[in-house]
Each structure stands twice: as structure tokens, then as C-alpha cells.
Amino acid sequence: MKHFRVNVHIVPRKGLLDPQGKAVGDALHTLGFTALRDVHVGRYLVIEMAAADATAAETAVREMCARLLANPVTEDFEIAAVTAA
């Protein structure tokens, strides 16, 4: 077994009202970042774990997301990186 570090982004599902993202976006507009189109505020998790290889680590984290880390009704998740730690 090797050690891996898996980075996961969890964001509000597209199309759902994201009031937090909107509030941050409005603040950035006020600061003069007028080119800004949209902001989404989510969570970023770093999971350290043992696995046979990177694929196995990613598979396990996908299951973690499906069962606990992301709410399937309101959130999408994306595995940003799997690196050997």
C-alpha cells in the first residue's frame, strides 16, 4: 500500500441558487472586478489515505463523495488531483 493525497472540490450544483457565491461576486464587482461573471463557493477537502495505486485511491474517494462528502441533491464534486504523498 502506498500513501496518496487526494484533493476534492465540492461545489453547489449548477443551476441552484448559490446566495453565498452571489454575495461574494457582488462584493468583487464593488471592488471593480467588472469582468467577473460568476462566483461559486464550495468546499475543498484534502484526503490522505493508503491505497494500492492512484486509481484505487480515486475510486475510494469517489465513493466517499457519493456516500457522505457531497449531497447528491445539491452538490457536485470533482477530484482535482491524486498525488503520491
Partner: peptide, 17 residues
Amino acid sequence: ACEAGLLPGALMRNAGL
């Protein structure tokens, strides 16, 4: 109850924050 699947749906941050 929603998270546990006893009821349909989910509760999100209030629209007005």
C-alpha cells in the same frame, strides 16, 4: 431526516444568507 433519506430533498443556506 433528509440527509438520512427518510424524507425527499435537502435544506440549503437561506437565500438571504
